[in-house]
Amino acid sequence: MVAENTSSRSLSITLRVWRQAGPTQPGKFVDYQSKDLSPNMSFLEMLDVVNDELTLKGEEPIAFAHDCREGICGTCSCTINGKPHGPGKGVATCQVYMRAFRDGDVVTVEPFRAAAFPVIKDLITDRSAFDKIQQAGGFITARTGSAPEANGLPVPKPDADLAMDAAACIGCGACVAACKNASAMLFVAAKVSHLGLLPQGQAERDRRVLSMVSTMDALGFGNCTNQYECSAACPKLITHDFIARMNRDYLGASLRAAFKPESAASGGGAG
């Protein structure tokens, strides 16, 4: 929830925005005055208004990522006043409202910063590294049509609830941006935990964690040093406890992989 400016009067702010024309061009902060804003306006609506003003002045509008504007798609990704997704707790950038700011504030807006998330333009970064980690193992192999009856496999409610807590991740990357090591451990741990907590996810549990973690490392994300900035910035308040769970899974899987030889026939089909 966002701290509230109880006044219903309009406010004006100075917007200090990161402008960068392209991935290889240098970027810099540029100031814009944004005036007479309603406190009920969302932060992104404020950017819409600024962009229309820039357009009319013949300048190029600020590129920013956004889509659903209700905190679930994970597209929006601004660091506002040094905090990924800004001043609120448990919200995405699109759920920040201007009532969180005071008249006369200087508001600094940057893209999510991480080596694995290169800037595409202005406030937009390339987060395709997250997709690559998912492709490496963030799934349960269940070909369409092969599924057994849904109630054939009861899942204890506490397990299902905990799995849902982890599955709430929206893949925005705030955890990475908040971490001084640009670690993706919370993101990976959420998926590993979600699937690993469910009986359906057991068959691939070892493979999944090993493969996702090695891909994460290869893509240039840092390691976890237990600062828990990730959970604090997470718009879904996903807890860092899942990182501990993933580490346990990873250790167990590594040991089992070391001592359990794979069948030589595992890759091929019988004739």
């Binding site: 799934f139 599924a147 057994p148 849904a150 496999l153």
Partner: peptide, 14 residues
Amino acid sequence: IDQCVAQGVPFARE
């Protein structure tokens, strides 16, 4: 529903 449960969709449970 069968397909989604097999994929690990965490539906609400009793």
